[in-house]
Amino acid sequence: MQIDLTVNGKRASLDVEPRLLLAHALRDYLNLTGTHIGCDTSSCGACTVLLDGVSVKSCTVFAVQASGHAVTTIEGIGNADSLHPMQEAFWSAHGLQCGYCTTGMIVSAVDLLQRNPDPSDDEIRAGLEGNLCRCTGYENIVKAVRAAGAAMRSGEARHSVNELMPIHPPREEPPPSGEGIIPQQLQETKA
């Protein structure tokens, strides 16, 4: 079947089997491999993308259902030159370890903030209930979403990876435990 959709702002025309899942269309036809697959029961959320701006599990949508619609994948959320505040916050707050759940988690969190720009910690936890992470214990994910919300509400400019990548601190005065390397609000008081 012929389908036409917009993915990350670009038109795409694909000839697909009716049973092809959107997740596979994105990964295997469009080579957008940032969308991951972690289960076969719509449980894990690793495959989350935005369909017309709203989060969906792309393993639970047929590619043909996306025809005529706009899909945003993690690759379209931000890139190394211009990170989405949510991506930056996950990085700064150590909201990821193996990274496998992370792309779907970030997309879900972006969707969450669209619906609720200033969620409480409990609302963040409830809002991410469709996404499983086995590595982080969620603590730093919650912290990241909170920080991203603050950044987005204050209209902070996007940063590039290069601006944020740690380099050697000044040799003359070694900072105590990384002060100035990570924004203060993201430093745990205790670790």
């Binding site: 990964r27 990085w91 700064s92 050697h168 900072p175 990384g178 390397i181």
Partner: peptide
């Protein structure tokens, strides 16, 4: 000399992971 050791620096592996540009096995083409 301890400037970096002991510091809470951001992870250097993360940019590829947060932008969906990492290569897991299923991403090998």
């Amino acid at each position: 000399f301890t400037a970096m050791v002991g510091a809470r620096i951001r992870r250097r592996e993360d940019p590829r992971l947060i932008t969906g540009r990492a290569t897991y096995v299923d991403d090998v083409r």
